[in-house]
Design a protein around this nucleic acid. Sequence first.
DNA 1: CCTTTCGGTGAACAACTGTTCACAGCGTAC
DNA 2: GTACGCTGTGAACAGTTGTTCACCGAAAGG
Lengths: 227, 227
Amino acid sequence: MHGRTPENDATRQERKRRTRQALLDAALELLEEQSFSSLSLRQVTRAAGIVPTAFYRHFDDMQELGLVLIDESFRTLRAMIRAARADPRTYEHMIHNSVEILVGYVHEHDAHFRFIARERFGGVAALRHAIRAEIRLFAGDLATDLARLPHLDRWSSEDLQLLAGLMVNTMVGTAEALLDAPAGDPAAEAEVSAAARRQLRMITLGVPQWHSAGAPPSQRRVRASGR
Amino acid sequence: MHGRTPENDATRQERKRRTRQALLDAALELLEEQSFSSLSLRQVTRAAGIVPTAFYRHFDDMQELGLVLIDESFRTLRAMIRAARADPRTYEHMIHNSVEILVGYVHEHDAHFRFIARERFGGVAALRHAIRAEIRLFAGDLATDLARLPHLDRWSSEDLQLLAGLMVNTMVGTAEALLDAPAGDPAAEAEVSAAARRQLRMITLGVPQWHSAGAPPSQRRVRASGR
DNA sequence: CCTTTCGGTGAACAACTGTTCACAGCGTAC
DNA sequence: GTACGCTGTGAACAGTTGTTCACCGAAAGG
């Protein structure tokens, strides 16, 4: 015990890590009510309880902080997706589980989701592009998962991409609807998730019909055309 | 000719209307590269070629200007929708026409569309709500249109709302993908519109199946649950 | 023609912004 | 135990922000 109290036990790099995290947390909280482009360095440091100039000990830039925030947000999102991919049994199970998990995660980490939704088309180009790349990645993963399901095992990869895009789109829309719902209103939440389940079911109903009514092979393209 | 040149013929209210429009146009152009919450009153007046204080002769507030801008944007969007609703013959025609019209409008009025996409989840609550209300209105209109189509004439209004929400979601996603596409790249544009057509077709394929596989009547709710 | 109305001007303000710099104090390494 | 390194401090800067105020000049109305 070289003069360290229990609360203040900390190697130097640990203390640094903590104030860095405090900056990130403060920023994320402020971002629940404003967009990133209007968030100032001084606001963040004020909320984190340090002086403005100390910010530069941790980030070069507000933009760098923003990118780290995106990374952090997508880490929780990827965890969610991993959970949702666990057991791809039937469509019904898949839909029910995925929506359930989505609702849970949005509820738990709503600041992360709100941040992503807001900056997906926000004013800062670097953030937009980072987010878009992640979503495209996500749709790709879903496409390979779908390939293992009945009816879909013989679809072309472009068609799988389209279907996955459709589903991701619906999920994104659902997440956004959940963020809109008044914070502690479980009824509204249940309604949104019921709507999402039925919309996804509507989509899957078309799956067995696709190849009989779909575009003729002559229209197929080689490159995937995401989203 | 009481001293009026051809270019400068203007009654006072006409001149006022013009600088007001100049403010709106300047704002819209600036908004192509930043979000509304980071757009300052002084930037707008500078771009419009007047002095900051003159702004108050036209708007109380930046927020008021933003709301007018939304109104203006949705006026072109409503014109688009009216065009798309013109001839609801078959699904195929409907899809093809709607996508075609969407692509054309986004191309023509991309500043309006970009503004709406950006502020739909932006930092300014008043704008968000105004936009959301308009989109919900739009989905409602589409639902009543859908009710006139085969297979759908006997659907419940909640199911029609869900289907319309699904389609609107896809259209919104398409519009956003178009805005991402490099400005003058017709190939990318064609690819996005082809993807949209096929996604909409996937959705419609499920329509005839819905009532046999859909939720049992006991799960039906009374209130519509938009999105 | 004279007066009123009104869109636009320019100076001024207090507040806030990002970034710099020299400096303090403590953990770390020798 | 002493010197270094690093995190956080506080003053200072030049620039931008929204908003106020008194004022100008020309169109509008009598």
